[in-house]
Design a protein around this nucleic acid. Structure first.
Lengths: 235, 235
DNA sequence: TGCGATTTGTCCGTATGTATT
DNA sequence: TAATACATACGGACAAATCGC
């Protein structure tokens, strides 16, 4: 029982890391909308820490791409632009194909089971209609390929992409409750990912990403026509 | 004269960023060898700033991949491992091919001139035998493709790769003055990059990266046989 | 195993510089 | 131009954790 204390060094988390988690959660669930200003002193007292750790949390989220920062001026939640969406999906297409090439000949039963499990979790969430959970599980499904590569640098890139994707989709949902992930799209993803035709997988990813980019870009375009609803911030 | 004060907002650099530059320079020129410990208080007084900005500089270099950090324990200059080298070169191959695909039909005269100019600068440095400058210009040459894409996310990935590459090559040079970039390799790079056969470009990159990875891995292997010379630090 | 020295993590108070109004 | 709000930076202090002896 006392054995729980056998912790790894890496398990020790600093305040900054913990605050980063809570702040990320706050942003991704709509507590802070795109464009909202991030004020150090206010958030520090809100989270019950001093400005030091909070600055570290901000810095981390800036690296993740959720916040934009201008020296001596201020920090804001990332604004959504069509150009950024194109960048995300184009880079994601390339890296996800690369990830599949890396693991293609190493897909064992454990991988297949886990992929199926995550896909099932996603469809469950879709049927239940919880959009935020859908986003999470969609990304969790696609994460498996990157995790399986055991390629740390690639995983870093993926984390950056995932954070931005989550922000876009969450904003999308919060703006007008539109369905993000569609069910049928992920059925074919699972099928091809477990199949034997790598070229089909490449096409599947390209197609999947193109549809995702189109959907998100359409949302951005609509957004721009009435941006006033986004500039406010939540209490 | 007083007109110099018409600065852009983005030009204002924080102390942390400036210290990060100096610390990066120190590492990449061998002032701090791989494995060397980074002590906040010592470096803070050495650079003449307080611990706050120095911590930010450390955090930035950790993000760039030049430092490794363990919470509550310490920070060290990145250790060189064969696995990390394989990751760098495999990801670099994929992203550099992606970059060329993005710009292939947009290579104008300005691009060609600039690429030739950077290649000439590289060969000049090679002839002059200054290894550190060779590394810089080799990376500057390869940077152009990424810069031309105007793809911010891709540029981020490249910056991460470039920092690590620079560290590996600089250590390599400092260890036993071996030539990093070879002249002939970059002649063919320029020729194919300006040519009309994209598939040849892909092959060129794969070949180029494979040779680079092999060279660096060989260095790592030799390193491991006598690591004692690396664990010391410079004054 | 335990102890002490070292280093990191954190907080506070204050001062200065910057942008915005 | 002045004033305000905020980010940046400093220094000192203490707690917490790690590492070497």
């Amino acid at each position: 029982m006392s054995g729980v204390a056998t912790v790894l060094k890496l398990n020790k988390r600093t305040f900054g890391a913990q605050i980063a988690d809570r702040l990320r959660e706050l942003i991704l669930t709509g507590g802070l909308l795109p464009g909202a200003p991030i004020v150090e002193s206010a958030l520090a007292s809100q989270f019950g820490v001093s400005r030091g750790p909070l600055r570290e949390a901000i810095r981390q989220l800036v690296e993740e791409g959720l916040l934009t920062q201008i020296p001596f001026t201020g920090t804001h939640v990332l604004e959504l632009t069509a150009e950024a969406v194109r960048e995300i999906y184009s880079l994601r297409t390339t890296t996800e194909i690369f990830a599949f090439e890396l693991i293609w000949d190493r897909r064992d039963q454990a991988f297949r089971d886990e992929l199926a499990a995550r896909q099932k979790a996603l469809t469950t969430a879709i049927d239940e209609g919880c959009e935020i959970e859908c986003i999470r599980r969609e990304l969790h499904l696609h994460s498996l390929v990157f995790e399986t590569t055991n390629h740390n640098l690639l995983l870093n890139v993926w984390r950056g992409l995932r954070g931005r994707l989550q922000l876009y989709w969450a904003s999308n949902h919060l703006a007008h409750g539109r369905r993000g992930p569609k069910r049928e799209g992920h059925d074919s993803y699972l099928e091809v990912a477990l199949g034997s035709d790598l070229e089909r997988m490449r096409d599947e990813i390209r197609d999947h990403m193109q549809r995702g980019a189109a959907t998100t870009e359409r949302f951005i375009a609509e957004r721009r026509s009435r941006p006033s609803t986004l500039t406010q911030r939540a209490g």
